[in-house]
Design a protein around this nucleic acid. Structure first.
Lengths: 197, 197, 197, 197
DNA sequence: TATGAATGAGTCTTCATTCAT
DNA sequence: AATGAATGAAGACTCATTCAT
């Protein structure tokens, strides 16, 4: 637990391992990525891995955590604090899609293994859900989203849509400019939130 | 390659292994399910597994395929052939959510492995995409969905939404009657498809 | 042990298994030939194997024995009883080479696994050695082969040469008419037996 | 592919495994030697085997190759460069018999597997054949071996004789001083090469 | 820090053999 | 006679993790 002190070079080496791991995890999945692979990719001996990480799981956790922080930051930065809630939802959504596209490797991670590691992956996700739920409620209060549906469920829908389209983009199943896709998803989400027939 | 000839008893035993595997896979994931576990669950010797399947992967493939067929059937059955395309999309969506709830185990499975085994899981998914894309196009032609967006991308969005809410339901993050959820998803999807602001 | 009574069809079936086994053994070796392979080649179910043979080893033994009998017969037939011993040695040698060429598959068997199954393979070989040793002694007595060398060792040399050239022929390392090869080996052996410098 | 870097200790350990394997292979045969046995004999854990070898087959190949080099060296050392070709053939033959006696274990090995793994065992053998063929041709040119027979076939005969008598010696079927046996084989081979009647 | 060596529990897979029908 | 099903002991191979240097 006690965060190790690393020299400058050590920090660099650790980052290197993290990056290689992210790349490999997102390419072949957690289970199919061996520690030996990670080390080989980083060009270091297998034993060194354990100098920087307690074990595989811990490395994975670090990866997930760091990515989540960055995503949240990206979302916050994209939202115009003076805009209405629905607009901010759309802005956050678009920012997320772009962020996911930009960090494709990192993001695949979230999808990967979310089943096997529910606590780890789930716990941070709650923060997201709360963020979004708050915005949905606000938008409802402002009358921008019709009442009657569960705000949390709607928020989950938003998050899911972002993740899904991010996945599609990542796996290359759609050849579309990233800005266009972001706009598309924004529209999709807003439509889903508002369009009750 | 040459499909083995199985007696009635053999077919039964195979089904049994398939079922046990599905149960275990969905409970603890593909990687954490040992062939020995599957056999133990079925109450047969380890070696017998290989009488019916080349290996774990092949068993998994059979599982995926069979499930896909059933889902498609459920969707088709739920659609009123005389209704308009958008309605049919909504019906198919609702039926899918319900089907997924009913076969939660099977679907958790798909989800878990969709990353590690993209080819396997993805290949048959195209059929679904095509089905939906066709309906979206029809609905566009009928003027029920505004023009201008890529029908296939919209179809992928529908499928994603179904999968995502199915996942939410499965993981118990929402305490809602399944019929209500299905209706919710139907509405969500229709909103997303039609509500362009 | 008690030889089973087989119907006419049964005898045929057994022969069939024997033949397939011989072919497979000589192609891929004893260890790499599975009972399942033999049955598949014969087009029967695996279980049937044990109706005809106690086990793999017994089948192998039957094969070896039958082949040895036939070889001995071929040698005897080739020898002119009125000829001198050296001539008969040459005749036997030539007949052996031809026999081995004709029954390539069977013969590979002898080489195969002679290490793992020394008793089985060795015991019959002694008969051969005795046959040949007798002839060598006779030839020595007749003054056709110089004295001074161990007759049994010479006999073993003859047998070895036959086996070796048979092997070469079988493995296709020499493109030569079989009669020519037989003559070559006959000459080779006679030279080795007589030519002391 | 990329040959692993080994420390001095590592090289030593590898050699140790190689030696243990050779011993076991020649005692009980390739198929009946388990990797676990090899490791047990070397007093190391099972897993370590795979640090040094990809698998059993590769270890075997290394064994074969190294042995072949040594044999060739022994032959070359035994030949008097000023002697005529036939003499050199005889010298090489005698050296081979002695070498094989000295490394009986290694050679039993070769023999056992020459059938199951013809490619592996056979491929390097060509070098030997070429060596001998060259000498035979030379001897023919010098008029020491009568013309008319295929030099390569004769060379193969020489090699076969050496192998065969080596085998006999190894299996203890002849109680003879090794020097005497070597001389015997030398004579046998020279007789076979020269004595055309 | 860094390396290469070493461990060993865990899994898959094979296959001769037996069984029920 | 014949089949397909079933068994289970082996054995190969993997890989996270630890160790000595």
């Amino acid at each position: 637990m006690a965060a190790k002190r690393h020299t400058e070079q050590g920090v660099e080496r650790k980052r290197q391992l993290l990056d290689c791991a992210a790349e490999l995890f997102s390419t072949r999945g957690y289970a199919d990525t061996r520690i030996a692979d990670i080390c080989a990719a980083a060009g270091v001996a297998k034993g060194l891995f354990y100098w920087y990480f307690e074990n595989k799981e811990v490395l994975f956790a670090e990866l997930v955590t760091s990515m989540r922080h960055r995503l949240r930051k990206a979302q916050a930065d994209a939202m115009d604090p003076t805009a209405d809630a629905l607009t901010r939802l759309r802005q956050g959504t678009e920012a997320s899609v772009q962020f996911m596209a930009r960090h494709a490797g990192y993001f695949a991670l979230l999808e990967v293994e979310s089943h096997d590691r529910p606590v780890l992956v789930g716990q941070g996700a709650d923060v997201h859900t709360e963020d979004s739920t708050r915005l949905v409620k606000e938008a409802m209060a402002e009358g921008l989203i019709p009442d009657g549906r569960d705000p949390e469920l709607l928020a989950l829908g938003v998050i899911g849509a972002v993740a899904h389209f991010g996945h599609i983009q990542r796996t290359g199943r759609v050849a579309m400019d990233i800005d266009d896709l972001a706009a598309f998803v924004g529209t999709w989400v807003v439509g889903a939130l508002t369009g009750v027939r």
